[in-house]
């Protein structure tokens, strides 16, 4: 009897479909419709927003791949994402290891470490632009007064510095998010393993390599993938910090597409670049989908 009812609870396909349809309809309109339009538009020659355009096959793609500005923005996207992932994971790791210790206020800090993530990007961009300003910024003041630097550094104003600065600011916002996830995986490591390792005379470094790392891998792999997918997609932070400049020094994919679409109004070119970015992320994201499995009940 109970078994029969349990099966009834689980197996009621119509109810399942009924509940998931609203969200599917919603994302069809807001996600899949724009995607299809973008693919379609990438085969037209809409040189200016509002034109109907004519079918021109793969010409836009050929032109895009031949565009030096686009190729450079591709390289910048790789640098930006790679560095962001690296820095965020390192910072998250440090934070997770610290939060795994026992100390007063640990519970409080474990929640409030997410503070940078709670604050809107616009505010962060404004705060950091001010703090990093060469003349009025507190960072340059402190660095000069501690004799770390002799003259003010134009953190956001020079081609040499801007990328690294933007990477640091963006990482500062995101690392707590991943710290929480890595901490979660640290906490499920059985403490007996460390005790046994200590008795066997393993050094802290060995313990880290042979106990900690293998145990957090199942979390670290999806975290790194999510982190990189999000890093590629970052628009707000870069735009509000630098507008893609100076020059084009921080012009990653999203900035390139935005400028083509909303400043030059070249819709087809913007769409082509966006589809290219989508395919790039899709290839990368397929790996991600492979690592996340839907849990069985």
């Amino acid at each position: 009897m109970i078994e029969k009812i349990k099966r009834k609870v689980l197996e009621d396909p119509l109810f399942g479909y009924f509940l998931i349809i609203p969200i599917l309809v919603w994302i069809s309109v807001t996600l899949f419709y724009p995607l299809l339009r973008a693919i379609y538009t990438s085969f037209l020659n809409i040189e200016f927003l509002g034109e109907t355009g004519r079918f021109i096959g793969w010409d836009n793609y050929a032109r895009l791949l031949g565009d030096k500005e686009f190729r450079l923005s591709f390289v910048r996207t790789l640098v930006w994402s790679g560095a962001n992932v690296l820095l965020q994971i390192i910072l998250a790791f440090f934070a997770a290891l610290v939060l795994d210790l026992e100390f007063k206020g640990q519970k409080f800090i474990r929640n409030w470490i997410l503070l940078p993530w709670v604050i809107p990007v616009v505010v962060l961009a404004m705060i950091f632009r001010w703090m990093l300003d060469p003349t009025l910024g507190v960072v340059n003041y402190v660095l000069q007064n501690t004799n770390a630097i002799s003259s003010p550094v134009p953190f956001l104003g020079s081609v040499d510095w801007v990328m690294i600065t933007a990477i640091f600011v963006n990482s500062w916002r995101w690392f707590p998010f991943y710290a929480v996830m890595i901490l979660a995986s640290l906490q499920i490591i059985p403490p007996q393993l460390y005790e046994a390792a200590k008795i066997d005379g393993a050094s802290p470094f060995q313990q880290f390599c042979y106990i900690t790392l293998p145990h957090i891998m199942p979390v670290l792999v999806p975290v790194i993938l999510i982190c990189s997918l999000w890093a590629v997609n970052v628009f707000d932070m870069i735009w509000l910090l630098t507008r893609g400049g100076p020059g084009n020094a921080t012009q990653t994919f999203p900035i390139f597409i935005y400028q083509k679409g909303f400043q030059e109004y070249r819709l087809s070119q913007a769409a082509t670049a966006a589809v290219f970015m989508f395919i790039f992320l899709l290839v990368y994201g397929t790996i991600y989908l492979g690592t996340v499995t839907l849990e069985e009940k």
Binding site: I27, T30, L31, P34, A38, L267, L281, L289
Partner: peptide, 18 residues
């Protein structure tokens, strides 16, 4: 999986056609 695939949608792309 479709729901998870949102990760890979470039937001600028959405904006272009929304």
């Amino acid at each position: 999986n479709i729901l998870l695939a949102i990760y890979i949608f470039p937001r600028v792309l959405l904006l272009l056609f929304l």
